[in-house]
Design a protein around this nucleic acid. Sequence first.
DNA 1: ACTTAATATTGATTCAGATCAATAACCTCA
DNA 2: TGAGGTTATTGATCTGAATCAATATTAAGT
Lengths: 245, 245
Amino acid sequence: MGLSLPQPSCSNCRISDLCLPYGLHINEVEQLALIIKNKRPLRIDELLYSRDTECLNLYAVKSGSFRGFITNTEGVEQTIGFYLPGELMGLDALLHGRFSCSVVALETSSVCELPLARLNELCVELPSLQYQMMRILSKEITSDHDQMLLLGRSSAKERMLMFLLMLSKRYGALGFSTTEFNLSMRRQDIANFLGLSNETISRQLTELSKAGVIAVKQRGIRIIDLNLLKSIVEPCYAHPISCPA
Amino acid sequence: MGLSLPQPSCSNCRISDLCLPYGLHINEVEQLALIIKNKRPLRIDELLYSRDTECLNLYAVKSGSFRGFITNTEGVEQTIGFYLPGELMGLDALLHGRFSCSVVALETSSVCELPLARLNELCVELPSLQYQMMRILSKEITSDHDQMLLLGRSSAKERMLMFLLMLSKRYGALGFSTTEFNLSMRRQDIANFLGLSNETISRQLTELSKAGVIAVKQRGIRIIDLNLLKSIVEPCYAHPISCPA
DNA sequence: ACTTAATATTGATTCAGATCAATAACCTCA
DNA sequence: TGAGGTTATTGATCTGAATCAATATTAAGT
């Protein structure tokens, strides 16, 4: 007989405003919490779900972090994103009921399990939940578009900087430091996400260190001059007058 | 006094099963049709909407084709997709109520206008419409992920082939020929979409012509050997035994 | 603490595709 | 019908990042 995990409560959850409950009334949040199940934590490199399997649940990151990826017919892998606390995984499966990507834990991590059938029922009852689902789906589309711009038109340096800036923002939103954080992913994962080689990632980090923009100690990143970093990647922020847009 | 356009009817629409009405009952389709408005056709290069403007309507392509794109702070443009009949545009705006990309007509094209406020109301009343919206959003996410794989990990030749194969499939779904079609976009647009230069697009098309895979006559494309084309881009299809996946 | 494996850095070389440059083909409309 | 502009092709050269290769560093297990 396994240990039974406690029923989760979104109302107490520190990150509920960054997650599915955002915009819901307190009694609606409680209804949502009733359908959510806790899962035992996943260990590093453990698979949460894999491509082509039936999607019975969506998952929200509760703690830790995950990596989503797809592979082509030759087995070439592309990391399509990293998931931090509050973020929903599995949205790509709403089309056919099967996951179209795979997700692994980057560190010891836990998730909230959202049974899809019951979530759908609840969306019919609670319009605000429905809207929030659509907002979340829409957000994923927008950030995927940004990633396409990055993969299609940016240099290695720009990609590296945008990656650091993205993490900085997301950690900030979670209440952590925007200038000091530990990467939960390997260089190889960053490289794969950014469409570069891991050697190029190393070189870019080294260059940025030498330029005094960041300090790197293995997985630990400290952004020394966040404004400088922003000004390299988004020149308009540094010279607003020259950029009417 | 302008000409008043006729009230559209989804029930009669040739492509309704590829569009928002898919999965709805006939009376539900009629409810949907009531909120839809026709717009006058757009001319080539005419802007349907642009980034950062308020999104009051979603748009479905009725005829013709469109190009969606985003620009970074330096004005560098990335085409994020092409829209063919039946496809919904503006889904990226559900997050903040503002479009996060711009859309222009590639040829003389028409759209159905879907007032967002009324669409939202209708989603609350009609769960099947709600599900269909989510499926469409999910589909966009999946295809964006495929595009990331393409931009991150593919050679110029693979990109070109995948692009042709994608168009072939989409035209096929619309009931057109899968092997003979006219490109509605410029080489420059294809290049931008695929993260390549327009010279590279020209060269790839020339090479594929010389190899006898396709015939190119300006915007006109004829795929001479669709299976050969598929086998180059998806080697597993040609040699199923060697690829367990 | 020591061994082994995994991960990260750094250097040397190569190459795919960008860029630069020069036609060529096509469309538009006067 | 032809002049001017746009779009596409083709060639020559360059370059950023991949690849190949070697070493360094860290983590994990006994």
